[in-house]
Design a protein around this nucleic acid. Structure first.
Ligand SMILES: [Mn+2]
Ligand SMILES: [Mn+2]
Ligand SMILES: [Mn+2]
Ligand SMILES: [Mn+2]
Lengths: 218, 218
DNA sequence: TTATTATTTTTGGCTAACCAAAAAATTAAT
DNA sequence: ATTAATTTTTTGGTTAGCCAAAAATAATAA
């Protein structure tokens, strides 16, 4: 049985390699997992032994196909739980991530299946992130980061990549919620801050915020 | 933070001491927790340090009031989850215990509160066991073990104390389900086996089975 | 191309949970 | 009261995960 620790490593490697199995280095992992680099060195060695990653000394780590399969499964559990907590239990989208961080480690296929069914087998979680299916397949979408949006174009907000409570509260205040339609009014030359129209109101957004908002081109 | 291991010890001590803080010995704990007695000795020493139990060498262990409070809370989480799995997700009552064994360790008060609310703050789980409230109070009931039933009397099945899949399957087959009304037809002198009427059908039950069925006097 | 900085690895050590085997204590049987 | 059986404790040892400090590599800047 894979331990909770191993699962957290796999999931983190998956996220850091952006799905496409880019090489991940120890420092990144240490930062995300809140351990020191020495600990990561040990861990990735063991994951290599288990054939869940390929670890090349002093270079980096990437998931094997079986590691990737496992990671996708953890991501699925995490996002199913997030959706469930939000849609069925009435938790706010800023609360679900933390709880799902624990629930994701409960390994019971039937449980996840029942949860998913009850939700109508959703393909996206409350943050707009795709939920891998039982086989690990992820539904593609023509989403972009708002930082890549073009002037005058219209978009629909589909999700966020920063799940911090602070950020989510900020979005809610400006009614920049999932499903909201927006139009890009101006993009500042000198700092790339964006002004957009949302619910008839004008909102100005920093480049950093725009980087964390996922939108669909309309 | 109390570890999963500590929580399992507290819960097991609670169950073995039947709520009323009877002394529990190492052998019993070792058997239930599937570890060797030496491991239990170490563990109860630590629990004593933490002031969660009173451990008297070579004699036994009992919960302190803070240990008891904690145990009640774990039992509450366990039974809320069992009820939720059965009532909201459609799991069979023979499936829920195993899953709840894991879910019970997720410590998030708001989560349990939401689950409980959604269920209408139930006082009994699908096995008929009482669910302690937030303060640890358990609702009393005039339940008896079927092995204590009297001839000609009528009862309503309220729960079971043996949660094994085999036993629950057996009960289901004979329609001895929660809520069923029964009448005691005969009690054999020589082996205490019981014949009862349930759903117009006659069912014969071993003393061992009767010991594990909880019923309410009608 | 050195020198400086950042990252990675090694080494030694720690704690929580476990087990096996032997010794000690308790309980039950004769 | 002895003996035998059971339970408990002690001692020594293991593994998973972690950290701190030092040594080795790799990357960047001068
Ligand atoms: Mn999340
Ligand atoms: Mn996690
Ligand atoms: Mn149970
Ligand atoms: Mn448990």
């Amino acid at each position: 049985m894979q331990s909770e620790t191993i699962e957290n490593y796999l999931k983190t490697i998956y996220h850091l390699s952006a799905g496409n199995s880019t090489i991940v280095n120890n420092k990144q992992l240490a930062d995300k997992l809140k351990v020191i680099p020495a600990t990561v060195t040990e861990a990735v060695k063991k994951l290599h032994e288990l054939k869940l990653v390929i670890y090349e000394k002093s270079y980096g780590t990437r998931l094997t196909s079986s590691g990737s399969k496992m990671a996708l499964n953890i991501v699925r559990r995490h996002r199913i739980w997030e959706t469930y907590l939000a849609n069925e239990l009435g938790f706010g989208w800023d609360e679900v991530h933390e709880i799902a961080e624990e629930l994701e480690h409960i390994k019971n296929d039937k449980l996840i299946k029942k949860l998913s069914e009850k939700l109508g087998n959703p393909s996206f979680d409350p943050h707009g992130d795709p939920i891998p299916d039982e086989k690990g397949k992820i539904q593609k979408s023509n989403f972009i980061k708002l930082s890549e949006a073009k002037l005058k174009n219209s978009y629909k907000i589909m999700g966020v990549t920063d799940h911090s409570t602070a950020f989510l509260k900020y979005l809610e205040k400006h009614q920049l919620i999932i499903g909201a339609s927006i139009n890009i009014k101006t993009i500042e030359e000198f700092d790339n801050s964006i002004t957009l129209i949302c619910q008839k109101k004008e909102v100005s957004i920093s480049p950093k915020a725009a980087e964390s908002i996922i939108a669909e081109t309309l």
